[in-house]
């Protein structure tokens, strides 16, 4: 939900006259919402600002985001960082991989999900 949240916020800021750029790893969610500018890093969620303990990767990621901010010609500008997480792209198959969902994992995930929803509901109502 993080990517959707900031996409909605970026739209709001932009409509009020403040230019924005999103640094994100979930391209589909951001583009589906529709935002002014996205720097997409094709990395596991959580690495939107660059690789762990790799200052050069982080610097290059930020620099590219700044260039997108400066030079996007129109809304829905997405630039994909040329950095790759790994030569082997098989890591991309693992996120929410249904073939690995055992009945125990399903029960656990349901519990987790219901708990999150009830906490959020209680907070909203309080």
């Amino acid at each position: 939900m993080c990517h959707q949240t900031v996409s909605l916020v970026a739209r709001h800021l932009e409509a009020s006259g403040i230019p924005t750029v999103i640094m994100g790893c979930a391209k589909d969610i951001v583009e589906h919402c529709g935002v002014p500018r996205l720097l997409f890093s094709d990395f596991p969620l959580g690495n939107q600002a660059g690789r762990p303990f790799d200052v050069r990767s982080q610097k290059e990621t930020l620099e590219l985001a700044l260039r997108v901010l400066e030079s996007a010609p129109a809304p829905r500008t997405t630039v994909q960082s040329p950095q790759r997480w790994a030569d082997d792209p098989s890591w991309k198959r693992d996120f929410n991989d249904l073939t690995k969902l055992s009945p125990e994992i399903i029960a656990e995930r349901r519990k987790e999900f219901d708990e999150v929803k009830s906490i959020a509901k209680a907070k909203r109502e309080s």
């Binding site: 993080c2 970026a10 800021l13 924005t20 750029v21 999103i22 640094m23 994100g24 969620l45 985001a65």
Partner: peptide
């Protein structure tokens, strides 16, 4: 007084 905003979702 922000002139521009960077958003970083996880």
């Amino acid at each position: 007084g922000s002139d521009a905003v960077i958003l970083a979702p996880s």
